[in-house]
Amino acid sequence: MEAVKLVYPVEGGDLIEAGEASSKMKLTLKKLGLPPDVIRRASICMYEGEINMVIHADGGQAEVDVGMDEIVIRMIDQGPGIPDIDRAMQEGYSTAGDMARDLGFGAGMGLPNMKRYSDEMDIETEVGKGTTVTIKIKI
């Protein structure tokens, strides 16, 4: 299989619509014939990342590279950045507001879930500039 690059804009502001990019990616990964477990893990990571972007950063962009032996997902935003990554990684810690909670998120599980389902996760963040979360999933 040749390497495939997918790019999805993530609209900010509308948490009701969040998840559209993840749905599209999932469909494409299915068409590429990847194993169901890999597709599920990649989809969950991107979905949580997408929700985070909409809650905290007014959207951004998701870039997905599907290679021979791994999927690399980069969630790139120009949001407020994460002041304390260690706290953000703690299960149950959240700075999300009521709207996120009303939709079943904001429980402080987003980044921990992304770590749980990925093989590697890296966060580059600068307060006031933005955040890029890179996820790798082995195929």
């Binding site: 998840g19 999932k26 169901p36 599920r40």
Partner: peptide, 14 residues
């Protein structure tokens, strides 16, 4: 919970 994210979540989990 009744909102579109329920369906999306269920979809991600197959």
């Amino acid at each position: 919970l009744v909102n579109p994210q329920v369906i999306r979540t269920a979809d991600m989990m197959d």
